[in-house]
Measured scan of single mutants.
Amino acid sequence: KNAAKIVNEALNQGITLFVSDNKLKYKTNRDSIPSELLEEWKQHKQELIDFLTQLES
């Protein structure tokens, strides 16, 4: 999976991924984040940080 797909899947579940101080963060109104999503974010962390940083610049 690529970073764009992961970010879109998160958005579809009401979760916004973003970068703050070079760290991957998220915002959501959900009570909890599915563990498989958290695991996927960890596996692709640097790719996600790079992707989101490019989007914001």
Rank of each mutant, 00 (worst) to 15 (best):
I49A: 03
E36W: 09
F18P: 01
L52F: 06
F18A: 03
D21C: 07
K23F: 06
F18C: 05
E39H: 08
S35D: 12
K23G: 07
Q13A: 14
L37S: 04
E39V: 08
T53K: 13
K25S: 10
E47Q: 09
Q54C: 09
V19G: 01
L11I: 10
N2V: 13
L52W: 01
R30Q: 10
E9V: 05
L37N: 03
E47T: 06
P34Q: 04
N12T: 12
Y26S: 02
R30P: 02
S32W: 10
F18I: 06
N8C: 13
L38M: 12
D31N: 10
V7N: 04
E9T: 08
V19F: 04
K45M: 15
L52H: 01
L38H: 05
N22W: 05
K45E: 15
K27M: 09
N2P: 12
E40G: 04
K5T: 14
Q43G: 06
E39Y: 07
N29T: 11
A3P: 13
Q43P: 02
S57C: 09
G14C: 05
A3T: 07
F51I: 03
E9A: 07
Q54P: 07
T53Q: 11
D50W: 11
L11V: 07
N2D: 15
S20N: 08
Q43T: 15
N2I: 12
P34L: 04
Q13M: 14
L17I: 05
N12Q: 14
A10Y: 02
A3Q: 03
H44K: 05
K5L: 15
W41R: 00
T16F: 10
W41H: 03
V7Y: 15
N22T: 06
L48K: 00
Q46I: 07
I33F: 06
E56S: 14
E56I: 12
L24Q: 00
F18R: 02
E47R: 05
G14S: 05
Q13W: 12
N2R: 12
S57L: 13
S35Q: 15
D21A: 07
I33S: 02
K27R: 12
E56M: 12
T28I: 03
D31Y: 06
K23M: 13
K45Q: 15
D50S: 12
E36V: 09
E56Y: 10
L37D: 02
V19N: 02
E56Q: 15
S32L: 08
Q46Y: 08
Y26I: 04
L55P: 10
L24W: 01
T53V: 12
L55F: 12
K45T: 15
K27Y: 09
D31R: 01
E56G: 14
R30F: 06
E56L: 11
Y26C: 05
A3V: 10
L17W: 01
A3I: 11
F51H: 06
I49W: 04
T16Q: 09
K42D: 15
V7Q: 03
S32H: 13
A3G: 04
I33Y: 03
K5V: 15
A4M: 14
F18L: 06
R30S: 07
K5M: 15
